[in-house]
């Protein structure tokens, strides 16, 4: 039963394998360039398992200790996972102990597959979800650690590899942009952050920016929602 589910799950994860091999290695290299040993990407990719936040965590590790900002940052960057959870409430029901791992490891990519995949009737759904989650996390952890270790050996000039994080957010931002009917929220995110950066400086602009974003989105709920209703 498990082997069958694994065989059914693996083909669905191949695109993720490609993506994670590249991003995970880049992340691993980034941790190496930032002066962190392989234990750091190993810990972060295992315990956090959320690409964007893990990149940001590296920046946090290199900045002064700021636990409240770290928690707020984690909650805000990962807030979208709450909505994945809402979408998966029924699918993950009655999965026994596996359920805890399924929820633990529900990154964007795993959610996308488990939410949309057509699972054959004769394959156990629970184990299918489980192997998709496990395979995806394995790709990520292995790539991240490999990237970090290779960074110590290869004599390649990788100055500037940290830009992969900026490029990744530009692409995610655009993907989000393509999905939106109105772009008020995206503009708010950019404009408020730039303003707060100018006013508060690079080390303390995030919390004011996050508060202003939540406040503005709350005040502008009508125009933003009005935009979404129009097809």
């Amino acid at each position: 039963m498990k082997i069958k589910a694994l065989k059914a799950a693996f083909p669905h994860t191949i695109p993720i394998l490609t993506a994670f091999a590249f991003l995970g290695m880049a992340y691993g290299l980034y941790t190496r360039v930032s002066g962190l040993g392989f234990v750091y990407p190993l810990m972060m990719s295992t315990a956090i398992f959320g690409g964007s936040l893990e990149f940001v965590t590296v920046t946090m590790l290199l900045s002064p200790f700021a636990p409240v900002q770290a928690l707020l940052m984690a909650l805000l960057i990962q807030a979208r996972h709450m909505f994945y959870g809402i979408a998966m409430l029924d699918r993950y029901r009655g999965m026994g102990l596996k359920k805890y791992y399924l929820i633990f490891a529900m990154c964007d990519e795993t959610f996308s597959i488990n939410c949309t995949a057509d699972i054959p009737e004769d394959v156990d759904r629970g184990w299918f979800y489980f192997f998709v989650s496990l395979l995806n996390q394995s790709y990520w952890v292995i790539s991240a650690v490999t990237g970090n270790l290779l960074g110590g050996f290869i004599d390649l000039n990788i100055q500037g590899i940290d830009f992969v994080m900026t490029a990744m957010f530009v692409v995610i931002f655009l993907n989000q942009w393509f999905k939106e009917k109105r772009h008020l929220s995206s503009w708010i995110g950019l404009a408020v952050s730039v303003l707060c950066l100018i006013v508060f400086g690079p080390d303390s602009f995030l919390i004011p920016a996050m508060v202003c974003i939540i406040a503005l989105l709350t005040f502008l709920r009508k125009p933003i929602e009005g935009g979404e209703d129009k097809v």
């Binding site: 964007s52 979208r80 957010f169 530009v170 995610i172 929220s185 995110g189 950019l190 920016a209 989105l217």
Partner: peptide
């Protein structure tokens, strides 16, 4: 309200993250 934030937040968050990378 939570459903609304779920839809509206991602755009703003990723905009904020780009600025964060460039801080």
């Amino acid at each position: 309200y939570i459903q609304y934030l779920g839809k509206a937040l991602p755009g703003a968050i990723f905009g904020m993250l780009i600025v964060y990378c460039l801080k």
